[in-house]
Write a protein that binds this DNA or RNA. Structure first.
Length: 635
RNA sequence: GCCGGCGUAGCUCAGUGGCAGAGCAGCUGAUUUGUAAUCAGCAGGCCGGGGGUUCGAAUCCCUUCGCCGGCUCCA
């Protein structure tokens, strides 16, 4: 058997040799550090025998696929430990995830934090025993017999779901055997540092109609130092949490009086207003007009739009003079009424009606998450009414705008998802295909990579979503583009074409920020509260050294305020170090220390929140520089 | 909504059946200060709410509300 290594060398081995043996021959260190292998491009276990000539590559923990193997093996160790301590536990599934792994168990009792500790110790024992991990395959009926014999009902269900001709493999380590496609690390001793992080409920197969299982989350690393580093990073990430920073920086708050309903404070409003100002400027340039529609509208409107049928459980209702009304969960019907208020000509299309619209949605209590998931939020919405042949170009224009906002202005990385027709939806297949096709063509035209979420679209149309990351790497949908042929039908929208006949326009629903609240949350976490100067609630703080410098410091503050800078005067009877510390904690971009030297020379001693002491500069020069920095909206 | 955890001063937290505490923040005074915390004093509490057990409950039990992590669902 000829084994071709990555560096081009060819070595000869007898049939059935394992990658681990090859690695040992190359270097003991490689044998130790390798986690998995790639054989002819396929992921391969180190202990998995080679069957013929092969191109062999070794993968260390640095490699993403190898990391998944490592964590997956860790999940097996977890399951083994749980089975030892809780023999009644039934195993569900236990995959590797981004930064670790989990395993779902069906157990009569609930796992306590103490149980987690016990399980973790048991895992250590399994690791110390360095049990070899062996793979074996069984025909379907024998596989079923095996898992039935063990009472593993969930595994029975999993095997039953496999294709009739599928190879059914199992992995065994010591007394423990699990149905698994593999591959795995060659022995349990390969797992060096493990940590169980939390327990959570999770429905079997992710369906809330099924039984809720107990999911244990954990992570593992080949070195204790790496685990420690990872745990430290998690702590660091928590310090960027917008809920914590929102309170610390006095941006917004939540109260029992309205769970899920955010209160914006003066500093938070500055941020929000700046974002809105920027949004209005850019949208005006792109041919959008702004409207505002009511928050409460008659229920009949929502019955007509389909919201009553498809979205009722997320809506709030009220009664006015014995008539039934609903609080809007979306802005579209309002925008449509504006369009319908006067007959339109094809010459006017596309008509782009933007609306910073406040919507209320009844979200389930367990999903609320600060500003990221609230029960009321303001969408930076727009409804574009266009002719069918204009749809694609409009979609591309929105994608360009999103790219400009996200990447250019804020410096965010994002990913795109396409969601198709859900089960609960309205309209004909033809309309859905046409709408989805327009989105797909626009994505192709922009050469954007995207993931497809089958059945995840809105009830009235398919959508393309733009996702941003929060401090813990969770991604949230922000921007979205939705193509809608339904609302125009439901509301009998029309325009007069070149031919003098009435035609039906298409509606494109879209948001760029998504919601002001969610976007502010992501923005806060992204910058860890140190907002770019143009967004900073306070852009400069003037810090007189003693009372005697207060008059000059006030003058400086006034000069800045007149230039349009958000400046604050800190005349408190404290030492400069104290005032600086407080301004630093509030992440004020510029601190201007003013003492005798500055007062005499008409300068300010500039301290930047991250660059530190910048020395003295003439006040006029500083003001000019700062104003230019603000106007450029630099990051 | 479901599973688990947690609710003590504005914030971060001690306090496990026997007198509600600390640091920071706040207020008052002293200090007049040069690049991340000056000192002292004062004030601050329905221990999330309700019910129960007990001679006695922040502490044990039940219930309810809220928050946190997941699941499901979604901007």
């Amino acid at each position: 058997m000829n084994i071709t290594l990555k560096d081009g060398r060819v070595a000869n081995y007898s049939f059935g040799a394992t990658p681990l043996e090859v690695a040992r021959d190359i270097a003991p260190r490689l044998a130790k550090e390798a986690v998995a292998a790639r054989v002819n491009g396929r992921l391969w276990g180190l202990g998995q025998p080679l069957a013929g000539d092969a191109a062999l590559e070794f993968l260390t923990f640095e490699d993403e696929d190898a990391r998944l193997v490592y964590r997956h093996s860790s999940a097996h160790v977890l399951a083994q430990a749980v089975k030892r301590l809780f023999p009644d536990a039934r195993l569900a599934i236990g995959p590797a995830i981004a930064d670790g792994f989990y395993y779902d168990f069906d157990v009569p009792q609930t796992f306590t934090p103490e149980d987690l500790e016990r399980i973790e110790s048991e895992m250590e024992k399994i690791i110390a025993a360095d049990l070899p991990v062996e793979c074996f395959e069984l025909p379907r009926d024998e596989a079923l017999e095996l898992v039935r014999g063990e009472g593993e009902d969930y595994k029975v269900e999993l095997i039953s779901g496999l294709a009739p001709d599928a190879v059914i493999s199992f992995y065994r380590q010591g007394e423990f055997t699990d149905l698994c496609a593999g591959p795995h690390v060659p022995s349990t001793g390969r797992i060096k540092a493990v940590k169980l992080l939390s327990v959570a409920g999770a429905y079997w197969r992710g369906d809330e109609r099924n039984k809720m299982l107990q999911r244990i989350y954990g992570t593992s690393f080949p070195k204790a130092a790496l685990l420690k580093e990872h745990l430290f990073r998690l702590e660091e990430a928590k310090r960027r949490d917008h809920r914590r920073l929102g309170a610390e920086l006095d941006l917004f708050s939540f109260h029992d009086a309205g769970p899920g309903f955010p209160f914006f404070h003066p500093r938070g409003m500055v941020l929000r207003n700046e974002l809105e100002r920027f949004w209005r400027e850019e949208h005006a340039k792109k041919g959008y007009l702004e409207i505002r529609t009511p928050i409460i509208l008659r229920r009949e409107l929502w019955e007509r739009s389909g919201h009553w049928e498809h979205y009722r459980e997320n809506m709030y209702f009220t009664t006015i003079d014995d008539e039934k009304y609903a609080v809007k969960p979306m802005n579209c019907p309002g925008g449509i009424l504006v369009y319908r208020s006067r007959l339109k000509s094809y010459r006017e299309l596309p008509i782009r009606l933007g609306e910073l619209g406040l919507v209320h949605r009844h979200e389930m209590s367990g999903v609320l998450h600060g500003l990221i998931r609230a029960r009321c939020f303001t969408q930076d919405d727009a409804h574009i009414f266009c002719r069918p042949e204009q749809v694609e170009e409009e979609i591309v224009r929105i994608m360009d705008l999103t790219e400009y906002f996200y990447r250019q202005v804020f410096g965010f990385e994002y990913h795109v998802e396409l969601s198709t027709r859900p089960e609960k939806s309205m309209g004909t297949d033809e309309m859905w295909e046409s709408a989805t096709g327009a989105l797909v063509r626009a994505l192709a035209q922009k050469a954007v990579n995207y993931k497809v979420n089958e059945g995840d679209g809105a009830f009235y149309g398919p959508k393309v979503d733009f996702h941003l990351r929060d401090c813990l790497g969770r991604t949230w949908q922000c921007g979205t583009i939705q193509v809608d042929f339904q609302m125009p039908e439901k509301f009998e929208l029309e325009y007069v074409g070149e031919d003098g006949q009435r035609h039906r326009p298409v509606v494109i629903h879209r948001v760029i920020y998504g919601s002001m609240e969610r976007f502010i949350a992501i923005l806060t976490e992204h910058f860890a509260g140190a907002f770019p100067v143009w967004l900073a609630p306070v852009q400069a703080r003037v810090l007189p050294i003693t009372d005697r410098h207060a008059p000059y410091a006030r003058e400086v503050t006034e000069t800045l305020l007149r230039a349009g800078v958000r400046a604050e005067f800190d005349g408190r009877n404290e030492k400069v170090g104290y005032k600086i510390r407080e301004a630093q904690v509030l992440k004020v971009p510029y601190m201007l220390v003013t003492g005798d030297r500055e007062a005499e020379s008409g300068t300010v001693a500039v301290r930047h929140r991250s660059a530190g002491d910048q020395g003295s500069i003439a006040l006029n020069d500083f003001t000019g520089r700062l104003v230019r920095e603000i106007e450029s909206r630099a990051r």
